Amino acid sequence: MKAQRKVAAFFAEHDVEGEPAYQILDLASEVGEIAKDAANSTDYGAAPEELDVKTDELGDALFSLLAVAESLDVDADEALDEALAKYEKRIEETGDPSSGR
């Protein structure tokens, strides 16, 4: 994935690669920022049509996720393909991609 290579290059250039456990905590924090945008912009769900999530927050979460993948030596493209195959199988079996059924 081109984006994962960009993250790897950024780490190499700035010597900022961290421990995966800390990167996972950072990822959770970044996803929390997206949820905060959603909660604030929709008045905690009362006005869903007002949803406004900042693109830089999405970028931060994506960066963090790709950083975790890179640190764990996981190819993000392969992980995505695996997830899509899992969802396709669930749809075929249950008609729904979620695991909650």
Rank of each mutant, 00 (worst) to 15 (best):
R101S: 11
F63M: 02
S71L: 02
N40G: 03
E30R: 14
V53I: 15
Q23M: 13
A67H: 01
A35W: 11
E82C: 01
Y44A: 04
A35C: 10
K54H: 11
P48V: 07
A61E: 05
A79C: 02
E92A: 14
P20R: 04
A61I: 06
D37K: 03
K2T: 15
L72Q: 09
E93M: 10
G59P: 00
D75R: 03
S41T: 14
A35N: 03
A76I: 04
V68Y: 03
V16E: 08
D81R: 08
A3G: 10
A39S: 12
D73Y: 01
D56F: 06
A12P: 00
T94E: 09
A69R: 00
T42F: 10
D73K: 10
D73P: 00
L51P: 02
G45C: 03
D37H: 04
A47M: 11
G32V: 07
L25C: 11
L80H: 08
R90H: 06
D96P: 00
P97I: 13
D56W: 06
A39Q: 08
E78M: 04
M1V: 15
A35P: 00
S41E: 07
I34V: 14
I34S: 01
D52S: 14
D75I: 01
I24G: 04
E19S: 10
N40R: 11
F11N: 14
N40T: 08
E13D: 14
D26V: 11
E82V: 06
T42N: 07
E57M: 01
Q4G: 14
P48C: 06
V16A: 08
A39I: 10
R90Q: 08
D60Q: 13
N40W: 05
L72W: 00
E88K: 05
S41I: 08
R5Q: 15
A9V: 07
I24L: 15
D43A: 10
R5I: 14
I24P: 03
D77L: 04
S98Y: 09
L65I: 07
L66K: 08
E33P: 02
D43Q: 11
K89I: 00
K6V: 11
S71M: 01
D96K: 11
A38T: 04
F10S: 07
D37C: 13
D26Q: 11
V7T: 12
E49R: 12
L84D: 03
V7Y: 09
E78T: 10
L80C: 01
R90D: 09
A85Y: 00
F63H: 06
K2P: 15
L65C: 12
E13K: 13
R90S: 06
R5A: 15
Y87S: 04
G59S: 11
S71I: 00
Y87F: 11
A38H: 02
E70F: 04
G18F: 01
T55L: 12
F10L: 13
A79M: 12
A21R: 13
Y44D: 06
V53M: 04
I24S: 05
F11C: 09
Y22K: 10
E30M: 07
G18E: 12
Y44V: 03
G100T: 13
H14D: 00
N40H: 08
F10K: 09
V31G: 02
H14F: 14
A79P: 03
D52F: 13
S41C: 07
A67S: 15
A12F: 04
M1C: 15
H14R: 12
L27A: 12
A83M: 09
A83I: 06
R101Q: 11
